[in-house]
């Protein structure tokens, strides 16, 4: 990703707004943009979702492949998650091999899903030691207006919950839905004008400092954390956003359950 110029005026203005407890688009400090979530929108994928938050739009698609289980785990399948931010998503995203930014995106989303244990890899085994399903989750950004992390996180879990194992096509039994037992949700907070805010848009990202990504599973268990970008934060700041994340995650979990029809 090309390194954008940060206008000093923007940083100063965001700091002015922060002093008065305001944001440049009028939202509250922990208010997210409107979330649109649609599942089963890609006919060629075995599971899919589209998420729109403001002008940020992403897709997630699930595909299945048959793999040979690893020798040390002969009765387990696998999960692979890859994020790609191609130049279609914005002026700043450049062509070429995956940038560190897009690799970080994919890995943080991957960790949240993997560590929550929402997919039982033993359930993916077909013939122990010989054949197992590999679940491949591909994340694709169409339009980046900030906070790709949360959009990817939401699309990822929704697409998995929407997925069907195409066993008939691979002559491995009957088609069945992929078992997803939990709903890990990521919430990202970005320090803008000296305090953390939720769901930043591109302008706030440009004029902001460090950010923190929190993935919470059911029962508020923490599954992944990531601090990104340059900046320093205190334990008190972290405690505040952690408690905010708990309430926001449960709201989003309801949204997912609604969209996938549960």
């Amino acid at each position: 990703m090309s390194i954008p110029l940060v206008p000093k005026l923007l940083r100063a203005h965001l700091a002015d707004l922060a002093k008065e407890g305001k944001r440049h688009d009028g939202r509250g400090r922990f208010e997210g943009r409107k979330v649109e979530l649609e599942v089963d929108c890609l006919p060629r994928a075995e599971g899919s979702a589209r998420v729109r938050m403001g002008d940020t739009i992403v897709f997630a698609g699930v595909k299945f492949q048959i793999m040979t289980p690893y020798p040390d785990r002969p009765n387990q399948g696998g999960l692979m998650c890859s994020a790609e931010v191609r130049p279609v998503a914005g002026r700043g995203w450049e062509p070429g091999p995956p940038s560190p930014e897009s690799i970080e995106l994919g890995r943080v989303v991957d960790r949240g899903i993997r560590e929550s244990g929402c997919i039982n890899t033993e359930d993916l085994c077909i013939i122990p030691g010989e054949k197992a399903w590999q679940v491949i989750l591909d994340l694709f950004a169409l339009s980046d207006d900030g906070n790709l992390f949360d959009a990817f996180g939401l699309a990822a879990i929704a697409a998995l919950k929407n997925a069907t194992i195409p066993a008939e096509r691979f002559e491995a039994g009957e088609d069945r839905p992929l078992e997803v037992s939990k709903t890990p949700i990521m919430c990202s907070y970005h320090k803008v004008g000296g305090r953390f805010v939720y769901d930043t848009d591109k302008k706030e990202e440009l004029g902001g400092d460090e950010r923190i990504h929190i993935t919470l599973g059911d029962d508020d268990h923490v599954h992944s954390l990531q601090k990104g970008l340059k900046g320093i934060f205190t334990a008190a700041e972290f405690a505040e956003i952690m408690s905010e994340a708990r309430s926001r995650c449960s709201e989003l979990r309801d949204l997912i359950d609604q969209a996938v029809g549960k």
């Binding site: 206008p7 005026l9 923007l10 100063a12 203005h13 440049h24």
Partner: peptide, 15 residues
């Protein structure tokens, strides 16, 4: 050019 009426650096407000 910044030679002319009203042409100057912006130090406050928002663009």
């Amino acid at each position: 050019t910044m030679k002319g009426m009203g042409l100057r650096a912006i130090r406050s407000g928002s663009v």
